[in-house]
Amino acid sequence: MIQTPPGRAFTLPRKAVLLAAAVFVTLILVPAFCHQGYALRLMGMIFMGIALASCWNIMSGYTGYIDFGPAAYFGIGAYATALLMVRGGVPFFLSIVLGGVVAVAFAVPVGLPTLRLRGAYFAIATFAFAEATRQAVLEWDRVLGVNFFQGSHGITLPIGPTHQFFYYTFLVIMTVLFVITYLVERSRMGYALKAIHEAEDAAELIGVNTLKIKIYAYAISAFFTAVIGGVDAYWLTYITPNDVFSVHITIKMVIMCLLGGMGTLLGPVVGASFLTLISEPLWARFPYDYLIIIGVIIVLVIVAMPKGIVGTLLEWKVDSRGT
């Protein structure tokens, strides 16, 4: 049986905990001092990016099974939230949680057959799932002759509260994910994830139920991605299938996590912050070449810096400590 790594889940240098707490408190207080809508919105977007990158990290970063279809859950969350709020009058916070539950209801049956096989199958199967979901939601009404998803007409949600509201919502979600990642990393599950990533067959042999662990990771990732999708839907007030199931969402998540460092705690934070901050000017200056540049960045990072910023830094730290 696997042993828990020496030391228990809550051991951590005092300094790091204090630092994290300080950052958190600062972030809570920011809106009290800064009323600039643009700044708050930007920070909200950064938090959302960090949260999304963390979701992708929990699954693909730690298990090594590349998920190319998180957009599916983002969209599921967005639509679930929208429909619940608009049709069912369900309050916002409950809606997004239910959206997460719906996402898990899809994630488990999708994950079960695909996670049993090589990573390649999982990668494209998840992509196919995202595309299929997008098309299904888009064509559903037309094909079945019902009035449910509204297809490309989209769904309009009730007007949401201020930017401050979303700032705090995303701050909370981001922090929750950060804490979850931290706890998982240091728990038995984290140990198992690492084993799966590095030597899955060996892990199976010593009794790790790799399928179960992979499904957990996938489900957690799906749940939170959907929640974030739900919040975003409320923030944007208007959603269409091509927006919320867009492959661009997946691309962003992948590259934010990749750039920062897959499988690390701070990777998503670094990657998402960096990318969101350069995205705005990049998008403004090169609206047509934006994706080409992103593609080039991806290739360069994979070829030159596969461990991302944080991963490479960690490696340097280990190397310089002496052989």
């Binding site: 693909s60 090594g64 099974y65 590349i66 190319f68 090589r118 990573g119 390649a120 990668a123 691309i251 992948v254 990749l258 070449d289 994706l291 080409i292 992103i294 593609g295 080039v296 960045i297 991806i298 290739v299 994979i302 070829v303 596969p306």
Partner: peptide, 22 residues
């Protein structure tokens, strides 16, 4: 990336896709 873990080649070809398509 051929000799690297397979995940690297998926992401890499994904990047190549973005470049070519766009």
């Amino acid at each position: 990336v051929v000799e690297a873990p397979p995940i690297m080649s998926y992401i890499c070809t994904f990047g190549i896709h973005l470049i070519i398509a766009n």
